[in-house]
């Protein structure tokens, strides 16, 4: 187990470093980095001081070292648009994003997993068809379109739910469902497949023959053996969340990090965007790392390999 932990940890660190190299490389690819780190109001003194501090007269690897050291301490430079440290802008918006992400994650699991189990147990029933149709729909339309259609139907036409901002629990309903739909669809399909496989196995037949109640067979014999496959798609689910957060926050004007990222592009605010990309990527890689380790812990075949 320790070897796996060290291995995955090293891989995670390598990926984060690779991302910092990409961001650093891009900041230097546009010529003088001061063009994207300072705005047109910067005084010549500030211009020279920045160059001095970042070691622009030194070789690139020294510049990378200086830049990386700043980055590790959370100094991503000042926002060109808001004139405050980028990290502060990001920090202010993190709670909103985590709240929405957390609720949507709950939605995805609470919808995806039980429906997958029911769909497998009631295979061929109207419920099964409904569930599979729901999954197929979620995987065939873009997330932003789901959001737009929800606003059109539930806010503009029916007037039931608010369409933007974060001001109370009603505001969570549409964004979290729109964000959770695609991950729920993936979970549903994989849970259904895993359940079907398990339910077809010999030990389930034995349990049935022994006269074990069907509730017990489904949940304690079947489901417990069907949780590992859904974990293998966790990485894909996180990726769906990462993209989804940016999209859904834009659609629902949600004051979170994803919307800040899209605004930074419109404002050409490279320091803020670089902060978001590095922090979000690291978080995403950390989540995947945890799932990898959990997976190794749950499945002895991986641990002992």
């Amino acid at each position: 187990m320790w070897r796996i932990i060290v291995n995955r940890l090293a891989f995670g660190v390598a990926i984060v470093l690779l991302i910092t190299i990409v961001v650093f490389g891009l900041s230097r690819a546009a010529g003088d980095p001061r063009n994207i780190y300072l705005d047109e109001y910067a005084t010549p003194e500030a211009w020279d001081a920045w160059g001095e501090r970042m070691g622009l007269d030194k070789p690139l690897y020294v510049q990378y070292g200086v830049w990386l050291w700043d980055t590790l301490r959370g100094d991503f430079g000042e926002s060109l648009y808001y004139d405050v440290p980028s990290i502060r802008l990001v920090r202010e918006r993190v709670p909103n994003t985590l709240q929405l992400g957390g609720v949507a994650f709950g939605v995805a699991i609470l919808i995806g997993v039980p429906l997958g189990v029911i769909s497998a147990v009631q295979r061929g029933s109207i419920i099964d068809y409904g569930v599979r149709g729901f999954a197929l729909l979620g995987q065939s339309v873009p997330v932003f379109w789901i959001g737009i259609m929800m606003i059109l139907i539930f806010s503009l036409t029916l007037g039931w739910l608010p369409s933007s901002r974060n001001e109370g629990w009603q505001h969570f309903i549409m964004p979290s469902i729109a964000l959770g739909w695609l991950p729920a669809a993936g979970l549903m399909r994989i849970t259904r497949g895993a359940m079907l496989n398990v339910l077809d196995s010999e030990y389930i037949k034995l349990a049935r023959a022994k006269g074990v109640s069907s509730g017990k067979i489904i949940w304690s014999h079947g489901f417990r053996n069907a949780i590992i496959p859904p974990l293998t798609v966790a990485a894909l689910i996180f990726a769906a969340f990462l993209t989804g957060t940016v999209v859904i926050e834009t659609v629902f004007a949600w004051p979170g990090v994803g919307r800040l990222a899209v605004q930074s592009i419109k404002n050409n605010d490279f320091p803020v965007l670089s902060a978001i990309v590095i922090l979000f990527s690291s978080f995403y890689i950390l989540l995947n790392l945890i799932v990898d380790l959990l997976y190794a812990q749950l499945d002895p075949r991986i641990r002992l390999d």
Binding site: I15, A261, F280, S281, I285
Partner: peptide, 10 residues
């Protein structure tokens, strides 16, 4: 392992 969208944004 790379987050595609974030890299694309930057």
């Amino acid at each position: 392992a790379m987050p595609f969208l974030l890299v694309a944004l930057v």
